[in-house]
Design a protein around this nucleic acid. Structure first.
Length: 476
DNA sequence: ACAGCTTCCTGATCGC
DNA sequence: TGCGATCAGGAAGCTG
């Protein structure tokens, strides 16, 4: 929706346009949005004169010359558009208030999510929906009260901040901004929050909302506070709508995930989820030495996850045979997945490859995340061949890349693969070279096994030392 | 009690 | 270029 700053902007723009004007006629084009008794809606409003306009959280409160109260929630797309009576209604006018000075205001809402209800001055704050909403950040003096509530829940902090019964005002845009500024991962469970972090969340909520109000809110997509009036705050957004763009603090590309079904943009390096271990990802070209590095990390005593091994395990399951056959539009006569046959198909039929990846990647990703949750260690090494292509790089806090020169890769593949021609073709499709500049340490494995081992051990130690520093400098 | 999913709608944009 | 899939400033209302 419009969030608190946009609703406040609407209030400030609308109040002077309607104050002391009298409603001569009310037209309702979409009755489902009226939450109070429908038969009373038009009669109780007709002839009333607008007085003050208030706002509670994201609700607009219209007051009149009697004790009548109109409560309006704009939800995602709601807006008020004013015009003259001789003009046509706005395109998605759901409720129209005609006024006695020849003007009208149209409540416009393409998606019909908004609500209106009548109440009265004495009771409207004591009954739903307003009785259920929490304080605005401006009115919270003691962060301990919030800390107590957050700490009782294992829900992601983003969910808790969107819960208007705990605190009201933040929506999807400003929650991402506040979490970015406070350097807190959107999925950090509430019971991990420290007092220091809650203080940061409160300070930043206050600042972001105040600045956004001062800028007239954010005009994004279809939302305008009023006809011809655009907010300017979107120019100051750090996170929202910036997925893939460099973090304005550390230049890491911002990641986008779903939290409670809402798109959530954050910096994977500035906002670390400490309920999970820190991740050193190992990625790189085909047959370049990823598995060797992973094995060395394991031998050095660190927990490891191999997504390659997970894929092999998945393919070995009986249920996978029919699934893969169906995705590749083929059959496996031996009732087991024939890797040469699969390779053949994915090299000649790109859409088939896409279908297969669309099935495999989410399964493996879920398994990796599950393992990360289970591992009770501060740090884990994860081998992911297609880290960047599969867009998993946001899971990594340090990336070791490994590559080989073309000639040496060709030689090794010819010596080691049962179907070298197909393997070479597959190697040629690997895009790692494109992403090389995004790794923290690049190992060029053109020498002996012994030389690889030396480089890998150095890289492993460097990754660990860097991440220990990261964890120490994080201000919980 | 509560986590997770669906629903209320329509329009713009993305991706094969 | 067309056409289905996905996404969008929100929150209530289901289900298990």
């Amino acid at each position: 929706m419009p969030e608190l700053p946009e609703v406040e902007t609407v209030r400030r723009l609308l109040e002077p346009r309607i104050i002391n004007k009298t409603i001569s006629l009310v037209r309702v084009n979409y009755w489902r949005m009226i939450q109070s008794k429908k038969e009373e809606f038009i009669p109780r409003l007709t002839g009333r004169t607008f007085k003050k306009m208030d706002r509670v959280g994201k609700f607009l409160i219209f007051t009149f010359d009697t004790d009548l109260i109109l409560i309006s929630h704009l939800r995602m797309e709601g807006k008020y558009i004013d015009g003259r009576l001789d003009e046509p209604d706005s395109r998605y006018a759901r409720v129209v208030f005609e006024l006695n000075d020849g003007t009208k205001i149209c409540y416009d809402d393409s998606r019909c999510f908004g609500t209106m209800q009548l109440s009265n001055r004495a009771t409207y704050l004591k009954e739903p929906p307003l009785s259920n909403i929490g304080p605005e950040p401006f009115n919270i003096d003691d962060p301990r009260r919030l800390l107590t509530i957050f700490n009782k829940s294992s829900r992601p902090i983003k969910e808790l901040l969107l819960d208007q019964t705990i605190m009201t005002g933040l929506g999807n845009i400003y929650v991402d901004e506040v979490l970015f500024l406070a350097k807190i991962h959107p999925e950090l469970p509430g019971n991990y929050l420290t007092l220091n972090e809650v203080k940061r969340l409160l300070v930043n909520s206050n600042e972001v909302l105040a600045k956004a109000i001062a800028a007239g809110g954010s005009t994004i997509r279809t939302y305008h506070a009023a006809k011809g009036v655009d907010g300017r705050f979107q120019q100051q957004l750090f996170a929202y709508n910036r997925a893939g763009k460099p973090c304005l603090r550390c230049q890491t590309p911002l990641a986008k995930i779903k939290v409670k079904g809402r798109g959530s943009t954050f910096c994977p390096r500035c906002q670390i989820n400490r309920s999970l271990p820190l991740v050193v990802a190992i990625t790189g070209a085909m047959h370049a030495g990823k598995s060797t590095i992973l094995r060395l990390a394991s031998e050095a005593g660190y927990p490891t996850i191999s997504s390659d091994a997970m894929v092999k395990q998945l393919y070995a399951q009986p249920a996978s045979v029919t699934k893969v056959a169906q995705l590749l539009h083929t059959t496996f006569p031996d009732n087991r997945i024939d890797s040469k046959q699969v390779l053949d198909i994915i090299l000649t039929d790109p859409p088939a490859k896409k279908r297969l990846e669309k099935w495999v990647h989410p399964i493996i990703k879920a398994q990796v995340l599950q393992r990360l949750k289970e591992i009770k260690a501060p740090l884990v090494f994860v081998e992911v061949p297609l880290l960047f292509d599969a867009k998993w790089d946001y899971l990594a806090h340090y990336i070791i890349g490994v590559t080989t020169s073309y000639d040496i890769q060709t030689k090794r593949i010819k010596e080691n693969f049962a179907y070298p021609e197909l393997a070479l073709k597959l190697a040629a499709t690997n895009q790692f070279a494109v992403y090389q500049n995004r790794v923290d340490e690049l190992i060029v494995n053109d020498g002996t096994q012994k030389e690889l081992q030396t480089m890998a051990e150095k890289a492993i130690n460097h990754a660990v030392n860097t991440l220990i520093k990261t964890a120490e400098s994080a201000n919980f």
